[in-house]
Design a protein around this nucleic acid. Structure first.
Lengths: 202, 202
DNA sequence: ATAAGGTTTAACCATTTGGTTAACAAAGAT
DNA sequence: ATCTTTGTTAACCAAATGGTTAAACCTTAT
């Protein structure tokens, strides 16, 4: 074997992802990432030069995972109602796999809004154009009440994303245990889509 | 005058609020807070002992500002639909005054979920019981479709809060300028409430 | 006036932290 | 075999950072 670790770079990225997504850029320590990867701290710099560059690698990877989720709702060619149901359903599965990811992206984007420009340059950046047309078409055909694609998109995202991002706050207000809150989220898996569809259906 | 600054403690809190809410606990520097307050760094420790205690003072103040907003929807005695309209309308004004506050609370609660227990001890902690009864009553009277108070509460919060928390992300997806996004938010001031009411009204 | 009290500051301190270096190890190339 | 390249480590470094201290300052009470 050439290396003690099979794929050091990937192991660093995995550890960095875990630490960065839980503690954010400012709250994460290079030493902690190295420890988690079971690797000498100098290796982080050997492979990624600086904390900033390691962070950006993690961030881009995270965004690459999230983008396809959004593409489902923005670019697919399915019926609008099915789309809403499909997204709400699959987003929850996604969050279970990557609990810290959406919040991580939103937070670091808040602290560094110009990241979005660099992301937009990437080919797989989600675009709302097609979704807008679909909504306009459904409005014109009298299938749904008048609403702009932007507002509907924001509504769908909000109803699906915030319950996970703000779970400690909601757990507090609802006085719900982890288990109870999880049950609420499971229930939402179908209920959210119907909530949205009920609102716009004519 | 006894002091160079009229009310040093308040000035520190104001500066700390500004820095902490923008950069979070981990990303904030005591020196930066002192500079912003135009005050020697030692004063921060003189009045608040440690960064942690200064942070908790800021956090409690922030929560004290947010709680009454939620009380409006949870405890007031107005009609359900008016409540939804009233909250959506007033929340946006609140966010304009305190742009970083809701995100700040959600973030720091995520990093420190046991904060919520300490907050719950306070007298003015919002409680959903009354709202649940109101929703159940409206369902029973056939005014709205069947929905649990919890889910409706989560929906109202999500639709109102996330668009501000995730504004850089949404601006990116919608390819909207600051001005355009602000216009969308203004439009939501009334539209969100109708979106919710449309969904549940029988 | 001056003693006493809280308030403020500059200088200082110990620790943490991101980053570097020089030496070492392992594998392939010659 | 040994030279070269790549990967890895322990030790180190300078800067940043939260926190402390001792002296100075200012106001009020005596």
């Amino acid at each position: 074997m050439k290396a003690k670790h099979e794929n050091t770079e990937a192991e660093i990225l995995e550890a960095a992802k875990s630490i960065f997504q839980q503690k954010g850029m400012a709250g994460s320590r290079m030493q902690e990432i190295a420890d988690k990867a079971g690797i000498n701290k100098a290796m982080l710099h050997y492979y990624f030069r600086s904390k900033q560059m390691l962070f950006e690698a993690v961030f881009k990877n995270a965004f690459k995972l999230l983008a396809p989720q959004l593409k489902k709702i923005l670019d697919e060619d399915t019926d609008l109602f099915d789309k809403i149901r499909g997204f709400s359903n699959s987003y929850i599965s996604f969050v279970i796999k990557h609990p810290y990811l959406p919040n991580f992206i939103i937070q670091e984007l808040n602290k560094n809004p110009d990241f979005i420009d660099r992301l937009r340059a990437g080919k797989d950046f989600p675009n709302i154009r097609k979704f807008k047309l679909q909504v306009e078409n459904n409005v014109a055909r009298g299938v749904i009440k008048p609403i702009s694609g932007e507002q509907l998109f924001i509504n769908i995202m909000s109803l699906n994303i915030l319950p996970f991002i703000a779970s400690p706050l909601f757990k507090g207000f609802l006085d719900a245990s982890d288990k109870e809150y999880q049950a609420l989220m499971k229930q939402r898996k179908t209920e959210v889509a119907e909530f949205i569809i009920n609102s716009i259906r004519l």
